[in-house]
Design a protein around this nucleic acid. Structure first.
Length: 293
DNA sequence: CCCCTGTCCTGAGCGC
DNA sequence: TGCGCTCAGGACAGGG
């Protein structure tokens, strides 16, 4: 379940291989993986073949590679997506969806970029680059995605104000990628545990200092995960070299139903919210008055 | 405009 | 053994 730290690990791994490389043959093996490329798979391939990759960028959970054409190849890993660099003759993976030939700089070994995705919640598309609010290019289809909390240009004060204007629970707000990006179910639960916040705490009642503590908690859990090389549970997430990125021992709340809270020993509870699991400590994170469920 | 729910997908695990 | 059910959840369309 790749969230910001896992995607950043992938970005970092891809950067060295892709920058300066030229895209060769493109094969779409499963149309669903390019469903958000509205002109269709043939156009997807046409706009990639022969193009030079100039960079590998990320915002939140989105990854994109600007091309010398003014387009970018955009990727979202969804639940189970992987971007693997394999030798061209390597045996096809079970859930291989898209393959992109790659002519890498002359001193590097030949590689093929492969999009592997069991559950097909992830996707690839090609889109034009448009300037963002700082004049740097990002794909037009993700112009609505907020900056992420590790972005130096993330505006903490603006986030605090936007949070207080919302009429919802704090976890729903953390998962809203148009408010703050890169946070998924795992890091939301971890950050809420760390800041001793209940997931249903009404956003309009969250003070500026409390927002600051919450952001600090989000950043701390993400930095810890990055330091470990990315968090994930199942072998569905594999980093760019094909190694599984595990981080279970660093988790304090997520997936720890009935296990003791690391601070107070109270068994961690599991609740269903937004059709997904929320894990929290009943004692450290008590249900707030006027909770928004 | 804002908020929230339903939907997409595959495979593991489990009860009968 | 095999069948059917549940669970995992990111992003967005569309309804209220």
């Amino acid at each position: 379940m790749p969230e910001l730290p896992e995607v950043e690990v992938v970005r970092h791994g891809l950067r060295r291989w892709l920058t300066g490389g030229t895209i060769g043959a493109v094969t779409v093996l499963h149309p669903r993986s390019v469903r958000r490329h509205l002109p269709g798979p043939a156009d997807f391939a046409d706009r990639l073949v022969g193009r030079n990759v100039t960079e590998v960028c990320r915002r939140g959970k989105y990854l994109w590679m600007p091309l010398d054409s003014g387009d970018a190849l955009l990727a979202h890993l969804g639940m189970s997506g992987q971007l693997l660099l394999q030798p061209p003759g390597h045996e096809p993976e079970r859930h291989l969806r898209v393959r992109l030939g790659l002519d890498v700089p002359p001193d590097a070994a030949e590689r093929e970029l492969r999009f592997v995705d069991q559950r097909t919640f992830g996707h690839l598309l090609v889109d034009r680059l448009v300037p963002d609010d700082a004049g740097v290019g990002l794909p037009a289809v993700i112009a609505h995605i907020a900056r992420d909390p590790l972005d130096p240009a993330f505006d903490d004060d603006a986030f605090a104000l936007a949070l207080r204007r919302r009429r919802t629970g704090v976890k729903r707000a953390l998962l809203d990628q148009s408010l703050i990006s890169g946070v998924g179910n795992i890091y939301a639960d971890e950050a809420l545990w760390r800041s001793r916040t209940h997931w249903a705490r009404p956003t309009e009642r969250i003070s500026a200092p409390e927002t600051a503590r919450l952001l600090e908690a989000v950043r701390a859990v993400m930095r810890e995960a990055l330091a470990e090389g990315g968090t994930s549970f199942d072998s569905l997430y594999v980093n760019v070299n094909g190694e599984s990125g595990y981080f279970e021992r660093g988790l304090n709340a997520y997936g720890r139903r009935d296990l003791p809270c690391g601070r107070c020993g109270t068994p961690i509870r599991r609740e269903v919210f937004m059709n997904r699991s929320s894990f929290s400590c009943p004692k450290c994170q008590p249900v707030p008055p006027a909770a928004r469920f």
